[in-house]
């Protein structure tokens, strides 16, 4: 019973940690040109978050900037759109543990490649 409770707490903490990891990415994008002091502090914050996440077995899902076929199980669109896109570009990577997805990757639709 105690063990089960501990597990439940861990699972919740892990989900929050995964969220924080993705949020730190968002923040990093916003404060890119804010001077060395802020960048340094942010680098330390991301490092600690990354370490905590890896110690909990969490890894990234997709790479920022990468293009992928849209999969609603793995991706969430940043802007709500009525039509489901075929391809997306990853903006913020998601977070997974093994096969389990804790946070989906945020993505934007890209127009389909022109056929040559």
């Amino acid at each position: 019973m105690v063990e089960a409770l501990a597990q439940a707490a861990w699972a919740e903490a892990d989900a929050a940690l995964a969220r924080a990891l993705a949020d730190a990415d968002v923040l990093t994008r916003l404060v890119k040109k804010s001077g060395p002091a802020v960048e340094g502090a942010l680098a330390m914050l991301r490092q600690s978050l990354g370490q905590a996440a890896r110690k909990r077995g969490l890894t990234r899902l997709e790479e920022a900037g990468a293009r992928a076929a849209f999969d609603p199980n793995r991706h969430v669109l940043i802007k709500i759109s009525s039509k489901q896109p075929k391809d997306v570009r990853i903006v913020i990577p998601g977070v997974v543990r093994g096969e389990t997805i804790l946070v989906k990757a945020e993505a934007t639709p890209v127009s389909p490649r022109r056929k040559r």
Partner: peptide
């Protein structure tokens, strides 16, 4: 190995 990510370990073993 993949099996170190098994759910039973709750993320504790693989790292």
């Amino acid at each position: 190995p993949d099996w170190a990510h098994a759910a039973e370990f709750a993320g504790n073993l693989a790292p």
